[in-house]
């Protein structure tokens, strides 16, 4: 597979979450710079504190993102300090950067259509191969509830930020569960539709 073909294989369906995350980091760091210039280390610490949760930023991510923002004219170097150690750049947001953040905030996130579900595929395959689709749905239901319990526990012990983040996940899991219930109630009907 050549380089061109390899990039073709990076379909949005497979890599969307990763791409969104990378885009969001840039905009988020830019947004954090609006309150005043900061060093890369400060940016990482603030990002982790406010948005990192289970996924703190690597230093490499911060510096590669800042290089990109610098190259695109969205930030500028406000000063360089060394104080006996390695050089530390202090970054400031530019007018173009402020415009970029405003545009990003004003742009609604694309609602996820959820049209390609592995679960749906599994249910249909189970029906086609005479395996227990009801059992599959029950096992999945149980796994979902287990995760909901973990998140509820974390929510109970966490601060408001934790509660909001967990609620977001809980509502999505609850939606999945409703689908599992509805599908369980329609299995006989579905079996007839997908029968060869």
């Amino acid at each position: 597979m050549g380089r061109g073909r390899l990039s073709d294989a990076y379909t949005s369906g497979v890599y969307t979450p990763c791409t969104v995350l990378l885009m969001s980091i840039g905009h988020t760091l830019l947004g954090l710079l609006e309150s005043g210039p900061r060093h890369g280390y400060d940016l990482k610490r603030t990002f982790d504190e406010k948005f990192g949760q289970d996924r703190p930023l690597h230093y490499g991510q911060v510096y590669s993102t800042m290089s990109r923002l610098l190259k695109n004219g969205l930030v500028e170097v406000d000063g360089v300090e060394s104080e006996g150690g390695p050089e530390r750049k202090r970054y400031a947001i530019t007018d173009a950067g402020i415009t970029d953040v405003s545009q990003w905030l004003a742009q609604p996130e694309k609602p996820e259509p959820y049209l390609q579900s592995t679960l749906y595929t599994k249910v249909v395959l189970a029906l086609l191969t005479d395996r227990s689709a009801a059992g599959l749905l029950d096992t999945q239901r149980s796994a979902h509830l287990r995760m909901m319990r973990i998140l509820t526990d974390r929510k109970r012990q966490g601060d408001l930020a934790d509660q909001l983040i967990c609620d977001h996940a809980l509502f999505h899991l609850e939606a999945d569960l409703r689908w599992l219930e509805l599908t369980a109630a329609r299995l006989d009907q579905l079996a007839k539709v997908v029968a060869p």
Binding site: D138, R141, S142, H144, L145, M148, R149, L151, T152, L170, L173, E174, L177, R178
Partner: peptide, 14 residues
């Protein structure tokens, strides 16, 4: 019948 309420439990029975 609400999963979010059931998530406060230690265990669930269907």
């Amino acid at each position: 019948h609400e999963a979010r309420v059931a998530a406060y439990s230690d265990r669930d029975v269907t």
